[in-house]
């Protein structure tokens, strides 16, 4: 059997693979949003801009500093995480006591500053970023070719996602995080420096976004515009999954990537809207989201 509903199997599997790649990015980004939201009660609108920054910095590092892919994969998230610390210290920390809507507006402003700034300096045209030689080419499975880089993206994202899940749910550090999320005042009264923990949480979330950006660089044209619609799709993912559970974010992100990929095969016109349509359906049948706890 090499056709399903009249679609050649390799094409189907190819799109499935692409869907998983996109889903990995959704998972990384919505995971970061969820971690930040848990601790700061802020929806980080700047998340897409930070993702773009991750890709742009790895391109810049390659072109101007000769820093290659592998070192970027480590250095760029650290650098963007440091920028996250600056954002948290100079901007976010002043609004924790206000309505969370202000957090959305403030980070929206940050997203505009970053996005507009990059467009002003680098223009809007896409730049190529080549796949590192170790991951070039494809594996021949007999019935289809599996591009190595796509496999790497999926494996790397899932590893980071599950490591994050493990860190939060199973370790001592994670217990501090969970405690700080649940009752920050009491947690600080036990001697834990909650303000620093909040700052590092934001830095970690931004670093995750940048990591996704570096991973994405070789799969797309790197440009300041690459994130302009990403954040909204990720918001829809978050609405669908709900932000109550770490594992929920990961699964929802991956799942929606796959759905998007399959839509490309069967009804390509709807592929850019399918995530939103799924959101509409979820809102109708399960308003709190698939993994949501809040009303």
């Amino acid at each position: 059997m090499n056709e399903i509903f009249g679609i050649p199997l390799p094409a189907l599997l190819g799109q499935l693979m692409l869907g998983l790649v996109n889903g990995s990015f959704y998972a990384l980004l919505s995971l970061g949003l969820a971690v930040i939201f848990g601790m700061l009660h802020i929806i980080n609108f700047a998340h897409g801009a930070l993702y773009m920054m991750g890709a742009m910095f790895s391109w810049l590092a390659m072109v101007y500093l000769g820093i290659g892919y592998w070192r970027s994969l480590l250095l760029v998230p650290l650098f963007v995480g440091a920028i996250g610390i600056v954002i948290e210290r100079f901007l976010l920390q002043w609004i924790y006591k206000l309505d969370p809507l202000y957090g959305l507006l403030l980070t929206f402003g940050v997203a505009l500053i970053i996005g507009g700034g990059f467009r002003y300096v680098f223009g809007s045209s896409g730049q190529p970023y080549s796949i590192p030689p170790e991951l070039g080419g494809a594996v021949d499975l007999g019935f289809m070719f599996l591009p190595k880089y796509r496999m790497w993206v999926i494996v790397a994202s899932l590893t980071i996602c599950f490591a994050t899940w493990f860190m939060i749910e199973k370790t001592r550090l994670g217990a501090y995080l969970r405690a700080g999320t649940e009752n920050p005042g009491l947690t600080q009264a036990f001697g834990i420096n909650v303000p620093v923990m909040v700052m590092l949480t934001y830095a970690f979330g931004t670093a995750l976004a940048a990591f996704a950006g570096v991973l994405a660089a070789p799969t797309t044209q790197v440009s300041p515009l690459m994130s302009s619609n990403m954040i909204i799709t990720v918001f829809a993912v978050v609405v669908i999954g709900g932000m109550g559970s770490i594992m929920g974010s990961i699964i929802t992100g991956l799942g929606l990537g796959v759905i998007e990929g399959l839509t490309k095969v069967f009804y390509a016109q709807a592929s850019s809207t399918v995530v939103f349509i799924v959101m509409v359906i979820v809102l109708m049948v399960r308003p709190a989201g698939l993994f949501g706890k809040e009303k």
Partner: peptide, 19 residues
């Protein structure tokens, strides 16, 4: 595209000190 940057700064300004 600096207009976007200016708009962003206006947002930040309004939220932080000019609510």
């Amino acid at each position: 595209s600096l207009v976007t940057v200016i708009t962003g700064f206006l947002f930040v300004f309004c939220v932080l000190v000019f609510r």
